[in-house]
């Protein structure tokens, strides 16, 4: 495994970004958790630090915590940055939470331009507004699409521009039905 241990990195960065925490997922994968206010500073430091040098953003995604059976239940959108260093050949995961009602995060497209596309996707599918993003439009769905489809409480639309998706007599098996299964 090339994943970097989170604790030494957190100790190194704590002075500049006090909200940083080294955590592990339920199955023991290390990651850094940070408050949105410190996010851009932390990622910039991670990119520029000589010993860390995370020069590439490998992935930026999110997942919905609504009804996720965690120890501390939350209804936030969890955004995930997966970083990779071409210099030192190690990777690191950084996570932060965006509140569901006022879903805002600072943009990281200033740190890596690769984030421009990833953030557009997260905005489209989860409705996270990235403040300061140069071109925040929907990328997958049509511009007049209603709702953010990958949220867990998304209700499937019956029609789009008056045309139904479905064949005659067919019904969606949407998320709520899935939970009952």
């Amino acid at each position: 495994m090339t994943a970097l241990a989170a604790e030494p990195v957190a100790a190194r960065m704590r002075q500049r970004t006090p909200s940083i925490e080294a955590r592990t997922t339920e199955n023991g994968q290390p990651f850094l958790f940070v408050a949105p206010a410190d996010l851009v500073l932390l990622l910039t430091l991670l990119r520029d630090d000589e010993d860390l040098r995370f020069d590439a953003l490998m992935d930026l995604t999110a997942y919905d915590l609504l009804k996720y059976p965690a120890k501390a239940p939350s209804d936030a959108i969890c955004a995930v940055w997966l970083l990779w260093s071409h210099v030192h050949r190690h990777e690191l995961m950084v996570q932060t939470h965006a509140a569901r009602s006022d879903c805002r995060l600072p943009t990281t497209s200033g740190v890596w331009p690769a984030a421009i596309y990833f953030e557009r996707e997260v905005f489209d599918l989860y409705g996270v507004h990235f403040d300061g993003h140069p071109d925040l439009r929907r990328i997958m769905c049509p511009q007049d699409w209603v709702g953010h489809p990958l949220r867990k409480d998304y209700v499937y639309p019956a029609t789009y521009h008056g045309v139904s998706h479905l064949r005659d007599g067919q019904h969606f098996e949407s998320q709520p039905a899935r939970e009952a299964r």
Partner: peptide, 23 residues
Amino acid sequence: PKGSVHCRTEAPRGEMGYFLVSD
């Protein structure tokens, strides 16, 4: 197991990485 995992592979068009979250 509950939790998340990230796995990267080299597909012909470059990295194909799966990030899975399990409940």
